[in-house]
Amino acid sequence: MSIGHSVLITGASTGIGAAYAERFARRGHNLVIVARDKVRLESLAERLRTESGVEVEVLQADLTNPSDLAVVEDRLRDDNRIGVLVNNAGAAQSGGILQQSANSIERLIALNTTSLTRLAAAVAPRFAEAGGGAIVNIGSVVGLAPEFGMSIYGATKAFVQFLSQGLSVELAPKGVYVQAVLPAGTLTEIWERAGIDTSAMSDLMEVGELVDAALIGFDRRETVTLPSVHDIERWRALEMARLQLLSGVQQAHVAERYQTAP
């Protein structure tokens, strides 16, 4: 089985997803672009066909809707032309758990974690059998920072990072590349939709700059790409500390500090 030239991008109507579509089109890749807003998708598709001469298919889907999600899953399982999945669709959520409703929590988790996981799981077996392909998952540095006070949103992004690193361990030996991209604050509509005033947020990165950096990481085959982190040794130190912590886990008995009651 061969891996195709096409790229499927979720959340492609605006922001990071649209920028990925532009960049991959410039590289000569055919596209399947997925989002809820069909009008915007059609407009983007027409522009990219004209500018880059690539094939662009529009697939309207709300990934929090199980039937829509299943359509995209089936496409990823069955279409051998698709060789890259960009799992970009997501939402932000302002405030902590005291400000959230059950419905808003459920929708956030469905979009940011459940749909992303299911789409990766749908395409991974085909990629593994073919010995190639790439899965790009868009996370956030907020997943590293519970201090930011966006606990549920941050938890979904921490999930994306862990999942991506775990999938890389599983799939890299089979020739499948998995990348987690962790942006910091980026100037997209995601904040407005979450009711967050971007005028109060300083130093937001322009979306094109973010995606260009992420694609350099993609070309370098980085497992985790942190476009806004200037000193990469800090990330490497964090990963080393994590591995050192794991090396000290001894599960036969509790640690000595817990063997005596206070």
Rank of each mutant, 00 (worst) to 15 (best):
L63Y: 11
K174S: 10
A21E: 01
T117S: 09
S2F: 05
N88P: 06
A70V: 02
D212K: 00
L144I: 06
G11T: 09
D197K: 10
V136L: 06
A21W: 05
N87S: 15
T188Q: 02
I16W: 00
S67Q: 15
T198W: 00
S247W: 02
N80K: 10
Q60S: 15
M1H: 04
R221K: 15
S52C: 15
V72W: 12
V141H: 01
N112F: 04
E209L: 09
I16Y: 05
N88A: 09
L215M: 14
L226V: 00
I3L: 01
G11S: 11
E22C: 03
A19H: 01
R23C: 13
A110Y: 02
S199M: 02
E57D: 02
V84N: 08
G139R: 01
T114W: 08
I138V: 15
A92M: 11
R220F: 06
L243D: 13
L210A: 10
D78R: 14
N103P: 04
A158H: 00
A21V: 04
N137E: 03
A92F: 14
A172G: 08
G131M: 02
P125D: 10
T223A: 12
S6H: 02
V136G: 05
D62I: 12
I97V: 13
G217F: 01
W191G: 13
D203C: 03
G53M: 05
S52F: 09
K157M: 11
V160A: 15
V71P: 01
L76V: 08
N88Q: 08
H230S: 14
V254Y: 13
D78F: 01
E46S: 12
V229M: 07
R47E: 00
G83M: 10
S6Q: 07
E256K: 14
G53H: 14
V207K: 11
D203T: 12
A102P: 07
A122V: 01
E222H: 00
A128E: 14
R40A: 13
I109G: 08
I109A: 07
M1C: 04
L111N: 10
A128D: 05
E256T: 13
G15V: 07
R242Y: 09
I196C: 03
L204P: 02
L76D: 06
A70C: 06
V39P: 02
M201A: 07
M205F: 06
T223Q: 12
S199D: 12
R193K: 15
L59W: 03
L69M: 05
V7D: 09
A25Q: 10
L69S: 08
T114F: 13
T10N: 01
V178F: 11
H253T: 14
A158L: 05
R236N: 15
K174I: 05
P66H: 11
S151F: 06
G4P: 09
E189F: 00
A213G: 04
V136A: 07
L238C: 00
Q100D: 06
E189Q: 13
R126V: 04
L116A: 14
A200G: 14
T114C: 05
I152F: 00
E73D: 09
